[in-house]
């Protein structure tokens, strides 16, 4: 089939147009993230321009309704980090153990059956976790104070601990599945090398397999941190929402307030608030959250890339 040159040009043009269209749509989809950064920054800037960063990051006085309002978010940042930190500390050991169990201990069939369990844990909407925290965990925790050594009186079941436990559970699926992939990627040869030297399973896993998949596990933890830090509904419903730093700081039985909960809670009357200082400070918080998630994301990607390179290099 020989095409006339006119036909050929037409085809070329069409194909170019199609390609450009695909490129345009793809760019629009991908560049949405830049739009997000831009618009969050645009609405955060008026706050930083008016109040600077000193009060926001270092003062604990959060009185947005006072006249003049005070926007010291230090306690809120602390709350976010405390709850996230506790959640990760709670979730990482069982997460890694579960991943090890699924990759090396349980028979393949059983771990295939367990996969839906993890998928279900990940699929349950966060508001349902929040509801569960509020109606089941909080009363349970409040009751359990009596059974704890020292007969601790837990004033309220909605506190940093409840939020952390639930956040930990929500971070668990990410941690388990990403670590499991990393552990699987360490490969059978490496494991056999260790077993052949007379190592037990625990020794093989601890001395060889875990170090070999360390960066994958780290990125799993980072993703878990991101999930916990960005989670809104659970902390809003179950952390107590008191803008304070617990005393002592590790006392998880006190209520705290997080960035996400503050944004969600204070923007409630968003329509009336548009343009106010309070509106802009919430965007400033959103911008900080965005920054944290970028840092975690970059670090995670870097680690995955490093792991891939190292395993390929070996």
């Amino acid at each position: 089939m020989i095409l006339s040159s006119g036909e050929q040009t037409r085809r070329k043009l069409l194909s170019l147009a199609g390609r450009s269209f695909l490129f345009a749509v793809t760019s629009a989809a991908a560049l949405a993230v830049l739009a997000i950064i831009f618009f969050i920054a645009r609405d955060a800037l008026p706050f930083f321009r008016a109040s600077g960063v000193g009060e926001f990051f270092f003062s604990k006085a959060w009185y947005p309704a006072h006249e003049p309002p005070q926007f010291g978010a230090a306690a809120i940042f602390a709350g976010s980090f405390l709850v996230t930190g506790a959640a990760v500390v709670l979730a990482v050991p069982p997460g890694i153990f579960a991943a090890l169990c699924m990759s090396d201990i349980l028979p393949f069939k059983v771990s295939q059956v367990l996969k839906p369990v993890i998928e279900m844990l990940a699929a349950i909407p966060s508001v349902v976790y929040g509801f569960f925290a509020l109606t089941v965990v909080a009363p349970f925790l409040q009751d359990s104070g009596r059974w704890l050594p020292g007969n601790i009186e837990i004033v309220s079941g909605v506190n940093a601990l409840t939020a952390s436990v639930i956040l930990g559970v929500m971070a668990l699926p990410t941690i388990v599945s990403v670590s499991e992939d990393a552990l699987q990627a360490a490969g059978r040869e490496l494991r056999e090398g260790s077993y052949a030297l007379g190592a037990t399973r625990a020794e093989t896993l601890v001395n060889v397999v875990i170090p070999a998949s360390m960066s994958g596990i780290c990125s799993a933890v980072l993703l878990g941190i991101m999930r916990a830090l960005g989670e809104t509904m659970v902390v809003w419903m179950a952390s107590g929402n008191a803008a304070q730093i617990p005393k002592p700081w590790y006392n998880l039985l006190q209520p705290v307030r997080t960035l996400t909960a503050t944004i969600a809670g204070d923007m409630g009357e968003a329509d009336q608030m548009t343009g106010s200082a309070h509106y802009h400070v919430l965007f400033a918080m959103g911008f900080c959250l965005l920054l944290f998630s970028f840092v975690c994301n970059l670090a995670g990607e870097w680690m995955v890339a490093r792991q891939r390179k190292r395993l390929r290099g070996g």
Partner: peptide
């Protein structure tokens, strides 16, 4: 670059999407 944009989008906290929706779709 486009790929890492998509990856980054996946990591944006959900409440920030809400803020963006308010600032962009509704207010802009």
């Amino acid at each position: 670059f486009l790929r890492s944009c998509v990856n980054t989008l996946a990591g944006v906290p959900s409440v920030v999407f809400g803020l963006f929706g308010l600032a962009f779709f509704i207010n802009t």
